[in-house]
Design a protein around this nucleic acid. Structure first.
Length: 222
DNA sequence: CCCCAGGCGTCCA
DNA sequence: TGGACGCATGGG
C-alpha cells in the first residue's frame, strides 16, 4: 500500500467512524481568525468562554477590538489561558489586518504570499496561519497539528523526526487540493485526538485505525 | 494530586 | 535546526 493510499485510507476510516465534523466552529471568517489564536494549545471549550466575553462586551469586530486596551482585553480572554500573550497576539493580528486591507484584500492575494505575510505576525505560527488560510479563506492548505504528527509517527508513516512541513508536504502530495476535504480531514484528526486511544492507558478497543500497520498507535504507552 | 489541551517565541547548544 | 522552557485557565 502506497503512502498516498494509506493516507486516503485513514481519511475514510475516520470519516466512517466519526462522520462530518462541521468545522470551523465559528460563524464568520473573523471569528475563525480570533479563534485560531485563542485555541493555541488550549481546549476549545475555554476559547468559547473567551469569545462569549468579547461578544457580550460588544467589541467582537476588527475595529472595536483594536481599541480595547491590553489589560481589558486580557481580562476578557482570561478563560482561554495565556491571556497576556494572546491579547498581544490578537492586537498584532488586528494591526496587520487593518494595514493589509481586511478580508477583501486578503482574498486577492496568492496563497503563498498571504501565508508568508501571516507568518510575519508575531504569535502566528504555521498551524495558526494555515487554519486561517483553510477555514477563513477556503484555500487548499492542509492544517497539521500535534495529533496529526502523533498519529502518522506512531503508525510509522512518517519518521519520528518529521517536522510540520514534512507532514504538510506529504498530505499535499498525496491528496487532491480540495479545501472541503482538507477541512474535514484535519477536524477528524482532532476528533480522533479526543478519543481514548490517543492518550495514555489502554488502547480503545474500537479504534478506527486499529487494523492499520503499526497498531497500536501509542507506542510509548506505559 | 496529576495530566492535558486544535502553539508559539525565546534562549541556548 | 532542534530541544527545553515559559506562558495560564479549566476539565477530567
Amino acid at each position: 500500500m502506497s503512502t498516498a493510499d494509506l493516507i486516503t485510507d485513514i481519511y475514510e476510516r475516520l470519516f466512517r467512524a466519526f462522520g462530518p465534523q462541521g468545522w470551523w466552529p465559528g460563524e464568520t471568517p473573523f471569528e475563525v481568525c480570533i479563534g485560531a489564536i485563542l485555541t493555541q494549545n488550549t481546549a476549545w471549550s475555554n476559547v468559547e468562554k473567551a469569545i462569549s466575553n468579547l461578544k457580550a462586551a460588544g467589541v467582537f469586530d476588527p475595529e472595536a477590538l483594536l481599541e480595547v486596551d491590553h489589560s481589558t482585553l486580557a481580562a476578557m480572554i482570561r478563560p482561554a489561558g495565556y491571556f497576556n500573550q494572546k491579547a498581544r497576539k490578537i492586537k498584532d493580528f488586528l494591526s496587520w489586518f487593518k494595514e493589509v486591507g481586511g478580508f477583501e484584500a486578503m482574498k486577492g492575494m496568492e496563497t503563498s504570499a498571504l501565508r508568508e505575510s501571516l507568518l510575519s505576525i508575531r504569535g502566528i505560527g504555521p498551524e495558526t496561519a494555515d487554519s486561517i488560510l483553510l477555514y477563513a479563506l477556503g484555500r487548499p492548505v492542509f492544517v497539521v497539528d500535534a495529533y496529526t504528527i502523533r498519529v502518522l509517527s506512531r503508525h510509522e508513516i512518517i519518521g519520528p523526526d518529521a517536522n510540520y512541513y514534512d507532514v504538510q508536504s506529504l498530505f499535499h502530495e498525496s491528496l487532491p487540493p480540495d479545501p472541503q476535504m482538507f477541512n474535514e480531514f484535519h477536524a477528524l484528526f482532532v476528533r480522533l485526538g479526543k478519543t481514548r486511544c490517543m492518550k495514555r492507558g489502554p488502547a480503545c478497543p474500537d479504534c478506527p485505525l486499529e487494523t492499520l500497520p503499526g497498531y497500536p498507535p501509542i507506542v510509548d504507552r506505559p
